[in-house]
Amino acid sequence: MNTTSVSHADAPASDAAQSRMLVWDAPVRVVHWLMALSFAGAYLTAENDSLRVVHVTLGYTMAGLVGFRLIWGLAGTRYARFSQFVRGPGAALRYLRSLFSRQPEHHVGHNPAGALAIIALLGTTVLLVASGWANYNDIAGHWTEEVHEAIAGAMLALVGVHVGAVLLSSVLHRENLVASMISGTKPRTPGEGIRRAWRGLAAVVLAAVLGFWWWQWQAEPAAQIGVHAVAAQHHGAKDDDD
């Protein structure tokens, strides 16, 4: 995931003039990797009933991260804002066509095609969590489970396209986009970077997620005892009837 465009056909400056500038603030990077970790964990635990609490916790985590990302997309740093990188299908097609030319469009943040992928991933996450919540709470019947699984499959496909596009863009633009999402920096001329990393806010987000995980898993044994008690009570009532 990368944010904003500088202009349609801005080519990078000469190597001599370039330096590594901060592009991705710390909250963007933390949310990105926590989202990736949460989706991978939720997907891998989906069919294991003994890990249901892990699956549900990671799903709720994704919902919270999307909520934060939407707020940060309005009030965050330059390359985190939706207004800087959401351009529409026309700009995305123009960017994709430029990849096959000798001078592909360069963007400091997210390119227009990547921006559409990000919006699709955020929207799909909302649908995924909502259908999972409905299924977990047995709302609207068994069909919600099938809807949840279908959306999870669509999400996995979007993630695959996103990862493939990042790797392809890294090769075509000769810059490691994965490393940039870890370090937050890119090789650019002065004036294109952001001034503040907001590491404190990123630490708060990470602490909130870790605290939520701890709280959920601490509460799980009590929830399991309650489930077993209800089951035992139900079994005893059946015996009395017999």
Score class of each variant (00 low, 15 high):
A231W: 11
H162L: 08
F82V: 02
G191W: 14
G41L: 00
Y43S: 02
I194Y: 05
F39L: 06
S38P: 09
L201H: 04
A140W: 15
Y136G: 01
R174W: 13
A232L: 08
A92Y: 11
L74W: 13
I194F: 03
K186A: 01
G132C: 11
G193I: 01
V31S: 05
A208C: 13
E145C: 00
T77S: 02
L96W: 04
R94M: 09
A140S: 12
I225M: 00
V227E: 12
V163H: 14
D138T: 09
R188G: 00
L51T: 03
S7Q: 08
Q233W: 11
A232Y: 08
E175Y: 05
A134G: 13
V166F: 14
A223F: 05
S38N: 05
E220H: 13
V163W: 15
P104H: 13
H107I: 09
E105L: 07
I119V: 15
S170Q: 07
P104C: 07
T125A: 09
G164L: 10
W217G: 03
P104Y: 15
Q216E: 14
S7W: 12
N176Y: 15
L128N: 06
L128H: 02
Q224P: 08
A207G: 11
G132V: 12
P190Q: 07
V23S: 01
G64Q: 11
M155T: 03
G59A: 05
D241E: 07
V66D: 03
D242A: 13
G200Y: 13
E145F: 07
N2D: 08
T45D: 00
P190R: 10
A63I: 04
F39H: 04
G211Y: 07
Q216N: 13
D240Q: 10
G132K: 02
Y95N: 05
T125K: 06
M181S: 13
V147M: 15
T189F: 02
T61W: 05
W133K: 08
A165L: 07
H55L: 05
R94C: 07
G160N: 11
L128D: 02
V163Y: 14
G200N: 07
V126D: 01
A152P: 08
W24A: 00
N48G: 02
T45E: 00
E47L: 03
L122K: 04
V171T: 13
